[in-house]
Structures are given as structure tokens and as C-alpha cells.
Design a protein around this nucleic acid. Sequence first.
RNA 1: GCCGGUGUAGCUCAAUGGUAGAGCGUCCGCCUUGUAAGCGGUUGGUUGGAGGUUCGAUUCCUCUCACCGGCUCCA
Length: 621
Amino acid sequence: MLRETMTDKAGEVLAVRINGELADLSSELMEGDHLEPVFWGDEGAEDIYRHTASHVMAQAVLELFPGAKLAIGPAVADGFYYDFDLPQTLTPEDLPHIEERMRKIVGADLKLRREVMGREEAIAVFGEMNQQYKVELLEEMESDEVTVYRQGGFMDLCRGPHLASTGRLRHFKLLSIAGAYWRGDEKRPMLQRIYGTAFDDAEELQKYLRFREEAERRDHRRLGRELDLFSFHEEAGPGVVFYHPRGAVLREIIEGFLKEEHRKRGYHMVITPHLFRGELWHTSGHMDYYRENMYYFEKEGMEYVVKPMNCPGHLLIYKTRPRSYRELPLKYFELGTVYRYERSGVLHGLMRVRGFTQDDAHIICAEDQLEEQVRECLEFAFYSLRTFGFEDFDVFLSTRPEKSVGGDELWEKATGALRDALEDIKMPYSIDPGEGVFYGPKIDVKLKDAIGRSWQGPTVQADFNLPERFDLTYTGPDNRKHRPVMIHRVVLAGIERFYGVLLEHYAGEFPFWLAPVQVVVVPVADRHLDYAREVEALLAERGFRVEVDDDRQTVNMKIRRAQIQKVPFTFVVGDREMEANTVSVRDRSGKDVRGVPVPEVMARLAEMSTERRAIAEWRPG
RNA sequence: GCCGGUGUAGCUCAAUGGUAGAGCGUCCGCCUUGUAAGCGGUUGGUUGGAGGUUCGAUUCCUCUCACCGGCUCCA
């Protein structure tokens, strides 16, 4: 029946949809069922394909390591994995062997057969096979019937659906081995996870593998070293960043942008200390809800905390005098450096550090101003991200977490305001249940970089709790005291992380306005050095970041060095240029234009710079 | 923090239970250079750290630190 329906493309059909539900190709049909074929590329097809690949891998592992116990093995975003409890530890050298065995299983073209089984029976069967993890899963299941899939001598507890046979699997690759806790719980046994990926199309697999190489090429840790931007030091401890001169320049540009844009929008810049008494953190609730992330110590019998957040400091400033409703919304902005303890295994270059600076602001306003303020924050955030070259975003609304302060009513009010603001600007979003901060719900913006990866970006958090804890008030038009609400928000968020994302986004090839070194002037021979210096001085006077490569090296070598350093423009100056007061402009793409008059060069560069244009090429014009 | 891996010159990487090596870089010469590597020489290491086994350890063992891939957590 199915065969006939699928006609000549039958060989390509991976599964079917019966009345909209994905199902095996071998499913039995009922009268009146609506049937759709599922091809590679259709929604859900990848998951089915990779899930089958994970079964084949499990079979291979079981054959190679007879004592293996199976945990779970789902399809994930870019592939699949399977967790095993093995009598021995795997090494990367094992992967090719497992792959080879997988190919054998694929070659044998084993049918995957679905079978419905009583839960008790399944517990007995898997118990017999010493598959205690499967037994544990079964014991927690609700329904009396479960499904298993068999292929050859291999059997796995599985909901399906699957490909019809192992022979249907075309292109796959095992990628890495990692540790993973049983059910993600660190109190449970550590299992060995094998990651892999699978595609029906060879070209797509190649594309994915190239994507991984590209990601490696863009790795900010590598670029940070190659471009001499920043470093980490074992003797200074992990998770704290040292910015080199060039790296500090880029950071200054980012911070300069932030200061300017905040000023334009009516924020007041403040500066608060890094070390406070513990008392303040008890008032704020951090000591109860954030303690495990904080650095604190005692001196002369007094408890001190290295600030993990900037909010309490800003509230102290608010409280220095009585406030009027006329002052609201009051917006305090700080490039606030905070320190948070992160478990040693989670640190990752600039993306996850222990000391970082946030572009942090706290907006204290009346309740009826909340929604508009949230909206302004979002607009500010999107404007900033676009300026830095990010165009694609995903937005999430995170609701009340388990550990939290404040009553239900406050949480509902705050969550409602965030939702309304999002709907107001017609920004599509999804809900992240329980992912809010302990003092309030939040909006998270994730940004997509040049190769499609998602990164945590701006957050906007509504907070009805801290104003209460700190007893914030303002005098209303009615001459009575009112309780303000506050917004915590960051635009680029942790500057370190944003810096890392930016580096990877551009693969170190920054647009002109962001490049740490914008121009290298290359004199052809010694006699052109003075002229090169003149050009350098002219550019530097206008605020451009320029260097002369005065090394006694060939022009080729000096150009090569500038190119490797990803400097946007190289100006070559020799006899002809010196004579005519011009430079020859070479951009990063390798294009060069000879004999451009210096005034023209200056004007063009100024344009690129002040407009913060996302380019660094010399276009004819 | 946990599981696994890695740690050799500034960088990329060799080597081996018996004197630790290459390329690039550094530095010094020569070359005076026209759009991605000119030539020659020179320098460079307590093999992450501490202990142990051994006649002898960079290699084997223990502890420790950092990093990498994950788990978990987050800006």
C-alpha cells in the first residue's frame, strides 16, 4: 500500500506522516488515514535519520564492548549522541573502529522492527540483559505499554519512529567523546557520551564538517593570541582577562560607543566600588540566593563581598536624598566590573569568565512607566546590536524560577509588563519557563553570528522586589510616598563575552571603525620612510589608528604581515606616491588602487569611521 | 566541581627509559625592495609544578595547576 503511494520516489522516502504524526514506513494504516511521505529535508526527517544512526552506533558499541550498558541516545540539533556505561574508557582512536562496525551494520541492511510490549515484560527483558538504565527508565514510565525497536540482535527501548532499515543510513561521522551524567544529574554516575552526526546527503555532511572547521578558524581564543588582543595567565588565575594594547583599543571603542549612546538616551553614568560590606548583600537577598557565585571574606570581624552585580550600589545612590516623581524615570548606567565564582570546568575564553564588565543600567520608574521603559531598552539594544553588525535575534521571556523572592502578585505584574512591551514592538518571542532571576522575570535576546550560531545578548529584567527590600520611595504628584519599580538591563551584556562574540562574528576581520589597527603604511624603500611618517602623522592627527612598518623588509613581506594581522588598509608609498602626494591603497580583499590623493583618502576613511559602516573595503567612488 | 584528554622554545609541532629537535618568530648582518614569505647567520627549553620509581625520567607512577571536549551552570 505504501509502496504504491510513493511511486517512483519511494527509494527516497524516509518515513511517513499519518494524520500529521511522524511514523515508521511500515506502520499499519486505518481506514481514512491521511498519509504524507517524509523526505530528507522535511521537518522531522533529520531527527528520525539521526535517531536511527544513534541506534546503529549503540549496536556497534554493544558488539565491540559486550559489557556496555545503554543509557539514552537521542537526536540533537546538529547530530546525535548516545550515553554508555562501559567497562573501559573510550579514546578518540576507538571512534574509527566504532564507525567501521557501524558501516557493517548498515551494510547488513537490518530491518528496524517496532514492537509493542507490556511495561512489566519490558522491565523483565531489559533486566535479563543487565540494562539497568533502561529498567530505571521503564520503572518511571506512566503507561502500561511501551515500544521497543529491534534490528538484528539489537534491541532498544524507544518511542521511534525510525528509518525502515539500517541500510537506509548513508553518511555519518562520529565526532567526539565526552563525559555526561546519567540524567544530567551530577550525583548520579558519569557515563561516556559519543557524539556523531548523520546526513542523507554527502554534500551536507561535508558542509557541516566545514562549518566546524570554520568555527575553529574563528575561535576567539586563537584570534586573541594571533592578533595580540588579550591573554590569560596561569599565575593570575583562571577566568580573568588581560587586554593587550590592541585589545584594549577595541574595548575602548566598544565602551566609547556605549557611553555615547547612553548619554544620548538620558542615562546618568555612575561609578561604584568593587568591594562592599556583606550587610548590603543580605539586604538585597544576594547572600541568600546568589551566595554560591560570590567571593566574600572577613576582615576585622567584618564581612566583605566583591560585587557580583551592580544593582545594590546604584540603589544606594538613589537613596541619598528624597526623590520626586519629576525625576522618574531615573536611569543609572555603569560599566560595572563584577566578579562571580564559576566552577573551574565551565570557564571558556572570553565567553565564560570570572571577572567581567557589564554595560549595566538600572532604571527606577513609576509602575505605569515600566512598559514604556522596557520597550525603550529593547529598542536601544537592537539598535546597538545592529550597529555592531548583528541582524538576527531570538527573544525569550523567562518566568519565575524556583528559588525566588517576592509574592505571586508582584511576579505576575512584572511578567505582564515585559510581555506587553514585547507585544507592543511586535517582537516575536518564546517563553522560557522558570528561567528568570531570583528577583524578577526577564527578557533575553540571543543574537546569531555570521555562521549562524546563537549567543546570549541583552537582557531586560523587571524587578518589584529590590525596591521593597531597599525601601525605595519617591514623592508623587499627590505629595505622598510611592514605591518605584526598577529595571535591570544590559545591552551588550558582559563586555568580555560580547568581545568574544564580535571577534568570532567577524573572524577578526573587523569593519574599519572597529579595527584595532586601521592602516599600516608601507614605505617601499628607506628613502620613502619620511613620507610614510608624514602620512602617518596626518592620519593620526585625525584620530585614525595607524602604524608605519619601518622594518627593513621587502614590500611583499610587509604587506603579508598586515594582511595576516587583518588590518583593513595597507598604504604603500614609493617614489610615485611621494612625488604626487598620494598613497596606493590595498584593502584586505587584496584589491589595490594606486595613486589616491591623500585628501581623498582622509575623507573616505572619515566617512567609514563616523558612520560606523560595516565595511572595510576600498570601493571605487 | 565531575568524566576524559592535553601540557616540550614566543607560536605550530617532532622525539625517546640513555646528550631534547624542526619550521616560523626574535636578534645580527647583507639586500633598497612596488602589492601574501629575499639571503645568510644567531638566539632560544629546569619538557606546566611538586614528589616518587630507576644507575638514569621529558618518557613510568602519585599529587597538583592550567588548558581542551563535554556534563552542569550562566552575562
